[in-house]
Design a protein around this nucleic acid. Structure first.
Lengths: 119, 119
DNA sequence: GACAGATAGTCTCCTTTTTAGACTAGATCG
DNA sequence: CGATCTAGTCTAAAAAGGAGACTATCTGTC
């Protein structure tokens, strides 16, 4: 059964949201769109180690959930632009708090990893 | 080559942290430990649809990174308790902001999903 | 005119990850 | 004696993900 059509198992709304953005790529994609709208291949290059397939799927999910908008320009070669919606922008506020935390604490995490290794 | 020993590809510290907590289960596990320390099977039941193996691996990572502590009581049957460290607690501050956002906005997301379906 | 690019994806294999479920040890309970 | 409890690990089978080929159409080069 495809995950796309599954309802989250628990009533908890957090779970419903986390199930979508709590994957390998969604946060990264949203962050990449933070400053400006971007095209598919641009995102591909910027994120670096994501595959076309996963980027495609991730963007589709984010669009479904209203975080980003997708605009197709009927040109050749095709041009498609992805941009944060208002919902997406508002999401980045708490998201940035999380990123800030990561910035301040990555040293502590690294040293925890080292401590763990030597133990 | 095992992912456990990989360095994150990009220099960006955010990426390094996101690579660890930005998976299917880490955020969920941390949230489950928010209110009180819990045992393995307790977490298993609370999260619901995680497998033993993934819970085990997730907890190991979180312990490695210093987010949680693992205490084994030499009893039979065994008892193991997982608890947030100070680092883990401090992480939950921005995390709660994210959860709050999810609470406030899950309705908007749901309606975006419906809109997408009908379109 | 022929030919290489460029774009946004999708499709097909093939590898990696995740799952479900069996299995373990040693104390306690009936 | 046999069932039950716990925290995992192990294995086989299923699912997800990655690499790269492929598409259609226009532009630019030769």
């Amino acid at each position: 059964m495809p995950a796309e059509t599954d309802e989250p198992k628990l009533g908890c709304p957090v779970r419903g949201v986390l199930d979508r953005i709590g994957d390998q790529w969604s946060l990264l994609a949203l962050e990449a769109l933070d400053d400006e709208k971007k095209r598919f291949n641009e995102l591909l290059r910027e994120i670096g180690d994501i595959s076309k397939q996963m980027l495609s799927k991730t963007l589709k999910h984010l669009e479904q959930d209203g975080f980003i908008s997708r605009t197709v320009y009927p040109e050749v070669p095709p041009r498609v632009e992805y941009e944060l919606t208002e919902l997406g922008q508002s999401f980045l506020v708490p998201m940035r708090a999380l990123i800030g935390w990561a910035d301040r604490n990555h040293a502590a995490i690294k040293s925890a990893r080292r401590r763990y290794e030597t133990a």
